[in-house]
Computed example of a mutant assay.
Amino acid sequence: MPKRRSGGRRKGGGGGKEQADEDLGPSRTVTGKELSELEELSARLTALVEMLDEKGVISAREYGRVVTMRLHEISKATAIGELDEEL
């Protein structure tokens, strides 16, 4: 039995540009300024969240709230871990 692909439709015949877009690879140059991997990843995530919000897949407001809570949890856990090491 052939394997079925899950997910959306593919555009174009090959995976050339689409595959390159999926791989973060080296930083990109935008208007003369080299972007760090962190800046590029942040821009990609922001664009993805905006697209998903526009299509009604997720709520950007809810996503922002969940991310804020997760960052707070990680920050607290890290601080507690550092205090524990000091003791």
Rank of each mutant, 00 (worst) to 15 (best):
P2N: 07
K3E: 14
R4Q: 09
R5T: 12
S6M: 01
S6G: 06
S6Q: 04
G7K: 00
G7Q: 00
R9N: 12
R9Q: 13
R10P: 11
K11R: 10
G13P: 06
G14M: 06
G14T: 15
G15W: 02
G16P: 12
E18T: 10
E18A: 10
Q19H: 11
D21E: 15
L24S: 12
L24N: 08
G25T: 02
S27L: 14
R28M: 12
T29W: 03
V30K: 07
S36W: 14
E37T: 12
E40A: 04
E40N: 02
L41Q: 08
S42W: 05
R44L: 10
L45G: 07
T46L: 04
T46A: 03
L48D: 13
E50C: 06
M51R: 09
M51C: 08
M51D: 15
M51Y: 04
L52S: 09
L52Y: 08
K55W: 00
K55F: 01
G56T: 02
V57H: 01
R61M: 03
E62K: 13
G64K: 09
R65V: 06
V66F: 10
V66E: 14
V67K: 05
T68W: 15
R70P: 15
R70V: 14
R70C: 13
H72E: 10
H72V: 00
E73L: 07
S75T: 11
S75E: 04
S75Q: 10
K76C: 11
A77E: 06
A79S: 13
I80M: 12
G81R: 03
E82D: 10
E82S: 11
E82C: 06
L87A: 11
